[in-house]
Amino acid sequence: MNKPVLEFNKVIFHYKNSEAPILDGIDLQIYENEFISIIGPSGSGKSTIFRLITGLEVPFKGSILLNGENVTNRLGAVGYMPQQDLLMPWRTVLDNAILPLEIKGIKKEIAQAKVRELLDDFGLQGQENALPGNLSGGMRQRVSFLRTILSGSNILLLDEPFSALDAITRLTMQEWLIEQWMKRKKTILFITHDVDEALFLSDRIFVLQQKPHTFIQEVKIPLGRPRTIRDVSKSEMVTLKEKLIDQLRSKVSK
């Protein structure tokens, strides 16, 4: 087993305007180079977990470790890709991509050179001078992911990044994301409402139960790598999918 890069130790959290805990003594370990998906009904706390990891919220009790260290100020310590790409419409692909490097104080010419080296890998060669409004949804998400990679963190948080894409583009982006993840050896946490997407992408799935969360169910995916989308149609995967959907439905109906 690889070393843990993200750990929750007895984390308790509630929002300031409520004393009802969302997380109540949660322990989690996420390992180097893992791909973890988080699924659960709307309002179950998926985004809250991301806000805690990024440092936008802090635990009421417990600790969150990044790469073995108890990092109290986590702002900027992990890469984050939101559901909306948040590209600046007046900036070109190149100038949108260099933003995290600019924030670090890297000179524009050096930052641009670094991004140019990656354009081909990200399917953006020849688009460096295009404005976001002239890009397809898939290409905009590639720029957003490139920007996330350039954060320099070994931990990347992806919050439903493909939810607005059509089915074919979404599948293409899933396959491309797996290629990039395997090539760059990052740890990815991925929020999704799509069980098929979680099954195809993940090593493990975290299933959020009813709040307050005293534990988080973990489901290990019985597929090796490399894998194809057809592997999700195997009998054991269909059975697992049905079980997960039944669980999610039961949480919504309560």
Rank of each mutant, 00 (worst) to 15 (best):
Q174M: 08
L131R: 14
A198R: 02
P161Y: 03
M139S: 03
S136T: 15
A167K: 13
L157D: 01
E197D: 01
R184V: 00
F215K: 14
K186Q: 12
P161L: 07
I149G: 00
V207T: 04
S151W: 01
A198S: 11
D194C: 03
G152K: 14
E197P: 03
L131P: 01
T172K: 15
R170P: 05
A164G: 03
Q180N: 05
W181C: 08
L208Y: 07
F215V: 03
L146F: 05
F162P: 06
F206P: 02
N134V: 03
Q127P: 00
E197S: 04
L146D: 09
L157F: 04
Q141H: 08
G137C: 10
L165W: 08
T169N: 11
Q180F: 05
R170N: 10
R142S: 04
S202F: 04
E175H: 00
K185E: 14
L189R: 04
S144P: 10
E128Y: 08
S163G: 02
L199H: 07
L208I: 08
S136W: 10
H213T: 06
M173T: 07
R184A: 02
Q174V: 02
Q217S: 11
D159C: 08
L146S: 09
S151C: 14
Q217D: 13
G138L: 11
K183E: 11
W176M: 12
L208P: 12
I155N: 09
Q180K: 15
S163N: 00
V219H: 03
Q210D: 12
R184Y: 12
